[in-house]
Design a protein around this nucleic acid. Structure first.
Ligand code: MN
Ligand code: MN
Ligand code: ZN
Ligand code: ZN
Lengths: 130, 130
DNA sequence: ATCTAGTTTAGAATAATTCTAACCTGTTGA
DNA sequence: TCAACAGGTTAGAATTATTCTAAACTAGAT
């Protein structure tokens, strides 16, 4: 599908930079990437977009739902005195975490671990808000 | 239980700073905190520990298993072209994320959402390694 | 008391992201 | 068609979390 239409649909002005990025990113394949890796890809294609613009664009794309950001709990490291395996509620209003004991969550269906790998821990994050 | 013994058990020299921190942190209650918030608590108690030392100590505590760090996927923002609700494998060897479709995971037991709050999304992270 | 490896510290360094403010460009409607 | 302007881009500065550096300090062993 046309990238121009995609941008117009979400009311983002289709600038050279946004068209270039959208063509790289929104090709229908599932990808995970960072601002830096995208900038390198742009570079490889013989173009140049400033890092500020990359961030501006990606953040706009997130705002309009063309992309999402993988959940981080903010930008500071959070330490936890509960060192045993457990899960968390994340209060989206405050950023506060609350423990969920592992026996509070069980699975009736669970994906096959990819061949050659082993399960190294499962963490469930339940986002809540009031 | 004695904080001196706790430190000796994990072969950390019980310095003034570590004793102070251990007394604040390792009181048996489950807490989530940051380096900065702990430094403020120290301050409130009329003491002072440099931020470098706070980080040094907390990181040591993590290394010996007295604390753990809440999972962040590194320190850079990761964007995802898959904007629908889904889960992830995290390859611990490479840091790479892979999508898990939400119908691949179902729960047979799920915790009650705290009173006054509503469920705002569930994310499962399955850590794998080879 | 002495020695030494490990620890603390102030401040510099690093690195991801955002901000600033000047310049540029897509779109609109006369 | 094209001037006007709202919105977009950019280089570089600012911000901020964390780590590093290197000098001073100290717990524990002898
Ligand atoms: Mn940030
Ligand atoms: Mn960092
Ligand atoms: Zn916890
Ligand atoms: Zn994904």
């Amino acid at each position: 599908m046309d990238v121009l239409k995609k941008l117009r649909d979400v009311k983002l002005r289709p600038t050279k930079q946004r068209i270039l990025l959208a063509n790289l990113i929104l090709d229908g394949k599932n990808k995970h990437f960072t601002a830096e890796t995208i900038q390198k890809e742009v570079s490889t294609k013989g173009h140049n977009i400033s890092l500020a613009t990359i961030y501006n664009c990606l953040n706009k794309f997130v705002n309009v739902g063309l992309l999402k950001q993988i959940d981080q709990q903010g930008e500071v490291t959070i330490f936890d005195t509960n060192v045993s395996h457990h899960h968390h509620f994340l209060n989206q209003n405050t950023g506060e975490l609350t423990d969920i004991e592992p026996n509070e969550i069980t699975f009736s269906k669970f994906p096959k671990i990819p061949r050659g790998f082993q399960n190294d821990g499962v963490e469930v994050l339940i986002k809540i808000r009031d």
